[in-house]
């Protein structure tokens, strides 16, 4: 996964609150291997009718080329299923902009190079008004913490450690391996001082 500092693309609105992970990807699609792609499952039951055809009354469906999603309050609440992020990423999204995110969703997003940008309620209203049911060209600057949508510039909040991670595209496992010695020392110490913390050999 590569890092990024700026992104320009089309923004689309999904002006609904509480888009939880069960809506982002229904459970029945979660056994699919990642290599097969998750994009088609994104918001499946919201966007498709019972036989799987994309519905016309969902404005979102008309804009398959969008890469920036402006969504309502409490986006990604619910389960830890990282597949919700895979669905967004595989459908071409690089950023979700919302007034608030589910915690686990947000950290999963960062682990996959997807920006979870938190904005104020007034800014959210302004962006939604501009977009209506269509798309607008937008750009994101991670370092400045800004989204520019047509003429409107909005500042977003992002945890500093997440900003660094997105920019560098870091892989945590590689990073952690640099601390191998500290981990081993900690483990030995815990073994000695809290042997009870290891499971008894049950049989």
């Amino acid at each position: 996964m590569g890092g990024w500092t700026t992104h320009a693309g089309l923004a689309v609105a999904l002006p609904l609150a509480n888009i939880d992970t069960d809506q982002l990807i229904p459970a029945r699609f979660m056994s699919v291997p990642r290599a097969d792609g998750y994009g088609q499952y994104l918001l499946h039951d919201l966007r498709r009718d019972a036989d799987g055809t994309l519905t016309e009354d969902c404005a979102f469906n008309a804009h398959a080329d969008a890469s920036i999603l402006i969504a309502g309050e409490n986006f990604g609440s619910g389960s830890s299923r990282e597949a919700a992020v895979y669905a967004l990423v595989d459908a071409g999204f690089r950023a979700v902009i919302a007034p608030r995110f589910g915690d686990i969703f947000a950290s999963n997003a960062v682990n996959n190079g997807l920006l979870p940008a938190q904005i104020g309620a007034a800014d959210y209203d302004a962006l939604i008004n501009q977009l209506g049911g269509g798309t607008v060209r937008a750009s994101i600057d991670l370092e400045a913490g800004q989204i520019t949508l047509a003429e409107t510039i909005v500042t977003f909040v992002l945890d500093e450690s997440w900003r660094i991670k997105l920019i560098n595209g870091w892989d945590d496992i590689d990073l952690t391996q640099q601390h191998r010695n500290s981990i081993d020392t900690f483990k030995d110490h815990r073994r000695r001082t809290a042997a009870w913390a290891w499971p008894a050999a049950a049989e």
């Binding site: 830890s80 990282e82 992020v85 686990i104 950290s107 999963n108 682990n111 996959n112 945590d172 952690t176």
Partner: peptide
Amino acid sequence: FGIGATEVAH
């Protein structure tokens, strides 16, 4: 606490 798949791998 619950974690996502990348964290599980970690």
